Simulated assay, not measured.
Amino acid sequence: MYGLSVGLASAQSAEEEESYSREFTYGLNFNSNGGLLGGAMIKQVYHMGGKWYQFWALEGVEVKHPKESRVQNYNTGASYINGKSNYLFVLRPQYGREYTFFRKAAESGVQVNGLVAAGPSIGIMAPYFIEYDRSNYIEQQGALYLVGPLIINTEQYDPNVHTNNFFIVGAPGVFKGLSEPSFRVGANLKAGLSFEYGRYMESVTGIEVGMLVEAFAGDMTLMPNASNRNAFFSVYLTLYYGRRR
């Protein structure tokens, strides 16, 4: 009887380990091209058999130029990104495969997966606008005096046109640029490892780390006076949470 009980317990434990067929997660992405917070992702995983899984994912991130630096106008207190002409936001639908190296026990432990994924990259280029002082001034004894009305125009930043930073009074924000988007088509490929935690089998909390490369067709000028490229490489970390069944 004792041996039969042990056998049943082992079979039950193995069944618990294989007890989920789907997993849905969502999380925040941090990457070397996105600054402090890169973007967000959602992911749906399906069990294929054994230790293999397939998944569909969607990532939305901002890609920044490595030369970006924020400057403050001390007269107005507002800030802007010096030399930036365009934002780049990217949507990445992906299909991938996962392999489980170490499986998490039913109520504790860590599960380690290896993964690869690929898919199209939909680039959204949005103009970066600044508020530029177009008023008339005269200079007397080293000081500027306003002549006539104050004229502040909202214009796409071109460092070859807006050469005097003194007259850049601020930036209206990203939503202004998103009202005038243009699109680029590309592709991406990533590889990584995920480490899943969770008190119970149906709960998923974890991190994913890896590398991603993507390339686009067309003009990808983010900063006119800096070196721009069509291919981007990044390392990333994603914090995610979800459920499985």
Rank of each mutant, 00 (worst) to 15 (best):
K43T: 04
L178Q: 00
S121H: 09
F129H: 10
G210H: 06
Y200M: 00
E107T: 15
N29A: 14
V90R: 08
L239T: 15
A118L: 13
Q140W: 11
S179T: 13
T25Y: 02
G210T: 01
K43I: 06
G50C: 06
I138F: 05
F166D: 09
T205P: 02
R103K: 13
A9V: 12
F175C: 04
N113K: 12
P127M: 09
S19Q: 13
D219S: 08
M1C: 12
K176Y: 11
S182H: 12
S203E: 05
L91K: 03
A117I: 07
K51S: 14
R134L: 09
Y197F: 12
Q141D: 12
T100M: 14
G198Y: 00
G123E: 09
S194F: 11
L212T: 14
S13R: 14
L144F: 12
L237S: 15
S194K: 07
L115D: 02
R92Y: 08
G34I: 14
S13Q: 15
W52R: 08
R134Q: 09
Y46K: 12
A117M: 07
W52K: 06
A9Q: 15
R199N: 09
V71Y: 04
P120M: 07
A171P: 01
K67R: 07
P224A: 08
G123F: 11
M211P: 05
A118K: 04
G198T: 01
T238D: 12
G242N: 01
N165S: 14
Q72V: 03
Q72W: 02
I122R: 09
G49S: 07
T154Y: 01
P127I: 08
Y137G: 05
M211K: 09
H162N: 14
F195Q: 04
L146Q: 11
E196G: 11
L28N: 07
S85F: 03
G34V: 14
A40R: 04
R97L: 13
L150A: 08
N188Q: 09
M125T: 02
A126G: 14
T238N: 11
N136R: 10
P93R: 05
A57E: 01
S179R: 13
K84E: 06
Y87A: 00
P181L: 05
I151G: 09
G34E: 06
F101P: 12
L4Y: 11
N164F: 05
R229D: 04
A217P: 00
V185S: 07
E18I: 03
S13H: 12
N153M: 04
N82G: 00
V112L: 11
L88W: 07
L212Q: 15
Y87T: 00
M125W: 02
S10I: 01
V45L: 02
L146T: 05
H47Y: 13
Q54E: 14
P66A: 02
Y157H: 04
E17H: 06
F55H: 11
S227V: 08
N31Q: 09
W56I: 00
N136T: 15
D158N: 15
K64A: 05
K64Y: 01
I152A: 01
